[in-house]
Design a protein around this nucleic acid. Structure first.
Lengths: 155, 155
DNA sequence: ATAAATCTATACTAAGTCAATAGAGATTAT
DNA sequence: ATAATCTCTATTGACTTAGTATAGATTTAT
């Protein structure tokens, strides 16, 4: 896979949106995300815009504008995000389900390398489709010792 | 991971050397490998030279020259080959054991993404360190219907 | 109404990587 | 000697990555 910085930034931005996610229509400013995650702001703008096109986040414009999740965090998987930002999860495209491309090997059906790469793909997909943004947020809260309960900030 | 063509060619070339491997000092010509695997010859020259530097193959020069494995096929793992040709197996370098690099996230120890990527890395490594070139050759022989038993050619 | 802060859209760029290709040299069996 | 091989270094063209830049559209507080 080899996640690019672009993909990593996308996940980190979504993590912030996930941690701040509440059921009203509050939005988070790009500047805020940029500060908390040390992501270059102008670059982050592009990425969030991509995520918007992907239907993962939505935005509000104007002086009180910003981004929020468009779907519930437990309906967003890491696989989905990475696929959208990076492309195939498979290490070679001849084992990719949705980005399949024929490779140059003499006979794909008898290709031993392909069969190993298939296993690798399946292992990667299993993990990344199994982790939702909600679970990721939960991990982070646990790692941070469960301070900063987001409910504290309402009222 | 996203294996490059270079890495895929390396595996395919080693597969040929593995299938042709016998305990005398017979070598296989680059031209031969290139023909059987449809790999551009001059490009393959570079790759085999890299594999030589890595200590995985050895070469014989001159008119009857060529390449052969330097180690027994069951002592060559796919992980080892890919690491040498491509670099880290980990999707992000902050979870790489031998190519570790600090990433830009606020706190690595509390990074939820990192902990997921760690799982991905471990899954990839487990598969690729678990498959030797000998096993790969065996898979190929099975896939090809077990014709061409190499013992047939030894008299 | 206006200003100010935000998001939107497109374009550009500098650096790096990938996949070769090229040319000249060294080695060795015949 | 010679011809086929491996060896070594350099170059190239296309592409990707990680931004930066510029200008514009939208919304809200005042």
């Amino acid at each position: 896979m080899k996640l690019s910085l672009r993909g990593e930034y996308a996940l980190r931005a979504l993590l912030v949106l996930g941690l701040d996610h509440v059921e009203n229509d509050a939005v988070v400013r790009i500047q805020n995300i940029s500060d908390r995650q040390h992501i270059p702001k102008r670059f982050l703008e592009q990425i969030l815009n991509d995520l918007k096109t992907a239907g993962i986040v939505e935005s509000k414009r104007g002086i009180a504008g910003g981004y929020r999740l468009r779907k519930s965090p437990d309906h967003i998987t890491l696989a989905e995000v990475i696929r959208y930002i990076e492309g195939p999860l498979a290490p070679v495209s001849c084992v990719s389900e949705r980005y399949y491309e024929k490779c140059s090997c003499p006979d794909e059906k008898k290709c031993g390398i392909r069969s190993v790469m298939q296993e690798v793909r399946d292992a990667i997909v299993k993990i990344l489709e199994g982790v939702t943004l909600a679970q990721l947020c939960e991990r982070v809260r646990k790692l941070q010792g469960d301070h900063s309960n987001p409910l504290d900030y309402i009222i």
